[in-house]
């Protein structure tokens, strides 16, 4: 059960920078506030609203899967991004033809 208490909603913990332009707060990505406020203001969003949006987003994504198919299959494999880029096969691929694919210039009837 949620209990609405003003101070818990509007006092925000400090953020940690994770990349150029992105910080993390409450285990949640946010834009670096320094990039906001010049042309685009931030709002005084209470904590419950942020959490609600995140929860609703996840529910919405699940809904989209169910909307399009009875079952969502996954590879069941770990992400491989920590391994760095893989090696290409080196096999030859077709290349752009020297002959243009465009239609020839039209012969106009006047």
């Amino acid at each position: 059960m949620r209990r609405f208490v003003y101070m818990q909603q509007y006092v925000r913990p400090e953020a940690t920078r994770v990349s150029d332009g992105v910080v993390i707060r409450l285990k949640h990505y946010e834009v670096d506030p320094e990039l906001m406020g010049q042309q685009f203001d931030q709002q005084d969003m209470p904590a419950w609203d942020t959490l609600r949006i995140v929860d609703d987003r996840n529910d919405h994504l699940n809904w989209m899967h169910e909307h399009f198919a009875d079952e969502t299959l996954v590879a069941g494999q770990e992400a491989e991004l920590d391994l760095g880029a893989g090696q290409p096969s080196g096999e030859p691929y077709p290349t752009l033809s020297e002959v243009s694919a465009r239609h020839p210039k039209p012969i106009l009837p006047y």
Binding site: M45, T50, R57
Partner: peptide, 19 residues
């Protein structure tokens, strides 16, 4: 408000949503 992509997908990130 909630169905707006500016809320649902990035409202939390930018701390600014459709109102």
């Amino acid at each position: 408000e909630i169905r707006c992509p500016n809320t649902l997908f990035v409202g939390d990130f930018y701390q600014a949503r459709t109102e």
